[in-house]
Amino acid sequence: MNANLVGIAIIDIVFFTLLVLTAVAIIRQRSLFAVAMLSGVFSLLSAGLFVTLDAMDVAFTEAAVGAGISTVLMLGTLALTDKDEMKRKRSALLPLLVCFVAGAALIYGTLDMPPFGAADNPVQTHVAPEYIERTPAEIGIPNIVAAVLASYRGFDTMGEVVVVFAALVGVLLMLGTTGRPSGKRKE
């Protein structure tokens, strides 16, 4: 048990180090192509972190959407714009200060949070045990996440699907619906 926890801690440290390195690399990088690929790497590392948190469904989604589709869409967007980031003219001092203040406020906020993984955390004592208890009897499927998403919170999930559909409508309104190469259009 203890060796297990140490192993998870080591994996977490490695993942977080790589995440920070990727983030710094994204900031330093001028080539937007590299930035798009690195943000895919960032998503894949986050997916790995979700696996260590036993959140398989979230990890799956992050790997498929964050590292997969959105990287491709970023590259597709890049093809429509420029390949390199514009050089900054103003100094980065004020944005840096804002980042540090906001970051310090967030860290200060975590001080009030209950200890990570403790058994009496609100997340463990609120509705989660109820779902775990009720799902086998009421729904009868092993994947409790699916039971919550599609049955207990079915209405929310329907809203999400409508949002996905609305995203398509928005993109089509901006880019046109034909799907024909721009060369063939009258512009």
């Binding site: 589709i69 491709v72 869409l73 597709g76 967007t77 093809a79 429509l80 599609a150 999930t157 699907v161 996905v164 559909f165 995203a167 398509l168 993109v171 089509l172 880019l175 046109g176 619906t177 034909t178 799907g179 024909r180 190469p181 721009s182 060369g183």
Partner: peptide, 23 residues
């Protein structure tokens, strides 16, 4: 229904972006 919408929306958005780029 979710799978159908998500698959076709992702693909349509990809096509919408990709069909505007030069060959």
């Amino acid at each position: 229904g979710v799978g159908m919408t998500v698959a076709t929306v992702m693909l349509s958005i990809f096509i919408a972006f990709a069909s505007h780029t030069r060959k």
